[in-house]
Every structure is written in structure tokens, then in C-alpha cells.
Simulated assay, not measured.
Amino acid sequence: MQDDELRFLEEQLAGTELLACVACGEDTLHAHLEVLEVYPVGTELLMHCTRCQTERKWMDWTPPTRQEQSN
């Protein structure tokens, strides 16, 4: 695998979370689709289940950095 292909796959994997899916009932990878809101205490994201293709909101409770808050 070439460096650019590996970098692309690493970026794709970095944009996912292993979450319990309500629709399919499995722990599956959910891809980050969109940032819905950035709060001082965390970030609300729209997630996409890679198994059953459903979407859901998810709250990442990691406080955002200054740069994320200003965007």
C-alpha cells in the first residue's frame, strides 16, 4: 500500500467511533458526518452507522480546543 493510500485510510478511521447502534443492536463503527454544535463542554455530532446505514446524534464530551470553538 502506498503512503497516500495509507494516510487516506488512517484519516477515514480517525473519523469513526465504535458505538452501540440502536437500530441494528451491534457495536459498530459510526462515521462522523457533520458537526451539529460545538459547546464549551463538548461537541454534538451527526453519526452514520457503517453497518445498517442509519444516522444518529452523538455527544462527544471532550472539551473542544480554542480553534474548534471559534469555527
Rank of each mutant, 00 (worst) to 15 (best):
R7N: 06
R7D: 08
R7E: 10
R7L: 10
R7Y: 07
F8Q: 11
F8I: 05
F8W: 09
F8S: 09
F8K: 11
L9N: 06
L9D: 07
E10H: 06
E11C: 04
L13N: 10
L13A: 13
A14E: 09
A14N: 10
A14K: 12
A14D: 12
G15E: 14
G15K: 13
G15W: 08
T16R: 11
T16I: 09
T16A: 09
E17A: 07
E17N: 05
L18R: 14
L18K: 15
L18D: 15
L19Y: 03
L19D: 01
L19K: 01
L19H: 01
L19P: 00
A20T: 10
A20V: 12
A20N: 10
A20G: 09
C21H: 03
V22C: 15
V22L: 15
V22A: 15
V22P: 05
V22H: 14
A23E: 13
A23F: 03
A23R: 08
C24L: 12
C24E: 10
G25Q: 11
G25K: 06
G25I: 07
E26W: 07
E26H: 12
E26A: 13
E26F: 09
D27K: 13
D27E: 15
D27M: 14
T28A: 14
T28G: 04
L29S: 03
H30G: 02
H30N: 06
H30Q: 11
A31E: 14
A31F: 09
A31R: 14
A31P: 00
H32T: 13
H32I: 12
H32L: 13
E34K: 09
V35W: 00
V35Q: 03
E37Y: 06
V38I: 15
V38P: 01
Y39L: 05
Y39S: 04
P40A: 08
P40Y: 04
P40I: 01
P40C: 02
P40R: 07
P40F: 02
V41A: 13
V41W: 10
V41H: 12
G42P: 00
G42I: 00
T43G: 01
T43Y: 00
E44V: 08
E44W: 04
L45G: 02
L46A: 14
L46H: 12
M47T: 02
M47Q: 00
M47Y: 01
M47K: 01
M47W: 00
H48Y: 11
H48Q: 10
R51M: 05
C52A: 09
Q53N: 14
T54N: 15
T54S: 15
T54C: 15
T54R: 14
E55P: 03
E55Y: 03
R56I: 03
K57C: 06
K57H: 08
K57D: 03
K57T: 12
M59D: 02
M59P: 01
D60C: 05
D60N: 12
D60S: 09
D60H: 02
W61L: 07
W61H: 02
T62A: 01
